[in-house]
Amino acid sequence: MIGNGKQDMAVIVVRDADAVAAALREALERAGDAERPGLQRALGLAVAQSGVPDAELRGGWAGRRIRAAGHEGPLDSVAAVKALRTAEPGLSLRQAVRLSREAAALTEKAG
C-alpha cells in the first residue's frame, strides 16, 4: 500500500486476482484428471477475490498492519491509528483514520 500526498486519500489497491484466474484457466486446460479438482477450487477462489470491493481490501490490509504492530483494541481507536502510522510512516493522519475505519467496518461486518 502506498500513501500519496497529505491531502488526498490516495491509497493504491493492487489486484492480481484477474491475472491469477487467467493463469489458472490456462493450467486447467492442460491439466490431467488428478490436477483438475485442485485447479478448479483455486480458480473459484481467485474469481471470488476479484469481486471484493476496494474498501474491503484496504480495510483488511490496514487491520493486519494494525494487529501486526501489536494493537489489540478497537481498529478505529486513536491507538490503532497511531499503530498504523507507526507501521506505515508514509500515511497521512487522514489516510490512517480512513483505513482504520475501513478495518473496523470489516470486523463489525464479520461479527
Rank of each mutant, 00 (worst) to 15 (best):
L75S: 04
S77C: 05
W61A: 15
G59V: 01
E72M: 10
S92P: 04
R25H: 10
E26F: 07
A103G: 07
R65T: 10
A22I: 00
S100K: 02
V81F: 01
V14P: 02
R101Q: 14
E56V: 15
V13S: 13
P74H: 13
R98A: 14
E26S: 11
Q49M: 14
P37R: 08
I12K: 15
Q95V: 09
G44K: 06
L84K: 06
V11F: 07
A22R: 09
Q49R: 15
R85Y: 06
Q7L: 12
A31Q: 05
E29F: 01
E102C: 01
S50A: 15
A69D: 10
Q49T: 13
E108Y: 15
A42M: 08
L106F: 06
I12C: 13
P89S: 09
A46G: 03
R58Y: 01
A96H: 03
G38F: 08
E26H: 10
L106D: 06
A69I: 04
E26M: 14
V20G: 00
A27D: 06
L84E: 04
S77Y: 05
A105N: 08
R30F: 12
G63V: 02
T107Q: 12
V78W: 03
G32Y: 08
V52S: 08
D8M: 12
E26A: 15
A96E: 06
R36N: 07
D33L: 11
T107R: 15
A80S: 04
R65V: 11
R65H: 08
G38T: 11
L57H: 12
M1Q: 12
M9V: 13
D54G: 07
A27P: 04
R41G: 09
A55K: 09
A27Y: 01
A21Q: 01
L43P: 01
R65M: 14
A27G: 05
Q95L: 12
Q95R: 09
A104V: 02
G5H: 09
S77T: 08
L24R: 00
L24F: 01
R85G: 08
G51A: 14
R30S: 15
I2R: 14
R85T: 05
Q49V: 09
G44S: 06
Q7H: 14
A42Q: 11
V47A: 05
K82P: 01
A68D: 15
G111H: 08
R94Q: 09
H71V: 04
P74W: 08
G70M: 11
I12P: 09
G3D: 05
R41M: 12
M9F: 15
A31D: 04
Q7N: 12
R98D: 13
L45T: 11
P89Y: 02
L106I: 12
V78D: 14
L39M: 10
R15F: 00
L43T: 00
R101N: 14
V47Y: 02
T86M: 08
E108P: 03
L39V: 03
Q49K: 13
E102I: 03
P37D: 04
A62T: 05
